[in-house]
Computed example of a mutant assay.
Amino acid sequence: MGHHECNANEIFEGQVHLYKHLHDHAVDGMSIKWMIELGIPDIMHNHDQPITLIELVSILQIPQTKVRGVKSLLRYLAHNGFLQIVRVHHNTEEKEAYALSAASQLLVKGTDLSLAPMVELLIKPNAAHVWSHLKKWTYEDGVTLFDVSLGSNMWEFLSKKPKFNESFNEAMACDSQMMNVALRGCNWVFEGMESIVDVGGGTGTTAKAVCDAFTNVKCTVFDQPHVVEKLSGTNNLTYVGGDMFKSIPKADVVLLKLILHDWNDKDCKKILENCKEAISGKGKRGKVILIETVINEDQDEHELTGLKLAMDVRMTCFLNGKERSEEEWKKMFVEAGFQNYKISPLTGYLSLIQIYP
């Protein structure tokens, strides 16, 4: 066995580690999707107090032979932090009941902060088909996992599949709602600004939040023509179609929210140069604001780094993009001709980066 003889315990630990990841992979996303499809977060939310297994299966009208299976799924979800198991007193006896956790609270449908659309987008039956081409992708020069598995890049795929595109836009919009919670605490970032352009701003979720918070700021949502063509603005919100690689509308602030991680360094440099052009002549006011992940393994908790590294794999494989460390961001800012930058925490996994010309 090479230089290091494993003792039996190490061998068994290795097996547990391997099996955990093999089983998790199949069960994790699907059990979350199952919970949403059955409407369990909504039932629990409306129930106002922890709910027992008996109450839950009776509301869901589950056949007796499947009660044990439902309990098995709920117990797994609880172990993973998607439910809380609490003890309740029922008449004279003590019973086990389930309550929502912070994570499953975000799966209640129809609330402002519901992330259910993100689950719909990421947990798709055909996702396994896409990932199964990873070996082929490794040897195909320059092409993405989307090209290898579906024969077109992700943006083409979205423009050709209206249903999938809708699901994508809904997921991005619900992710933006989370961002808006964070931006409310960031008034200082937008102080004294007269105009903002949100590049790749999609259907305008973030821009609307900015407009609500700063009624005297003119907001422009800039995205591909097919994204914005059917959208109508308000008195301080306009939608403009175009191509960020050609030019970006002029403004005091250019906002790029989770855009640059979709692109390689060369493309990002081009986008940032166009941003710099868009804020030129704005004096002290002009700046570019990025909302992005910063990989920081020395400081982040193990689980948070795990999320960032998983996102990096997804961005790299799907889009030839990447998640970046502070050193990588800094190098890019300098190459695009910026003098200075400042990174502040924003949400659990995102940072706010201000770049100055």
Rank of each mutant, 00 (worst) to 15 (best):
M35S: 00
M35N: 01
I36W: 08
E37G: 02
L38R: 10
L38E: 03
G39C: 06
I40S: 01
P41E: 06
I43A: 04
I43T: 07
I43C: 09
I43V: 08
H45E: 14
H45I: 04
N46T: 07
N46W: 11
N46C: 08
N46R: 13
H47A: 02
H47W: 14
D48V: 08
D48Q: 14
T52E: 01
I54R: 15
I54M: 15
I54Q: 15
I54S: 15
E55C: 13
L56K: 10
L56F: 00
S58V: 02
I59T: 03
L60Q: 05
L60D: 05
L60F: 01
Q61K: 14
Q61R: 13
P63D: 12
Q64F: 09
T65G: 15
T65E: 15
T65W: 09
K66V: 00
K66Q: 11
V67T: 08
V67D: 05
R68I: 10
R68T: 06
R68V: 11
G69S: 14
G69T: 08
K71L: 09
L73P: 02
L73A: 15
L74N: 12
L74Q: 05
R75A: 03
R75M: 02
R75W: 05
Y76S: 06
Y76V: 07
L77G: 08
L77D: 04
A78N: 10
N80S: 04
F82L: 09
F82C: 03
Q84A: 09
I85R: 06
I85L: 00
V86Y: 11
V86P: 15
V86N: 11
R87A: 11
R87M: 02
R87D: 15
R87H: 12
V88L: 01
H89M: 12
H89R: 14
H89P: 03
N91M: 13
N91C: 08
N91G: 11
T92G: 15
T92C: 07
T92A: 14
T92M: 15
E93M: 09
E93Y: 00
E93V: 02
E94V: 04
E96A: 14
A97L: 00
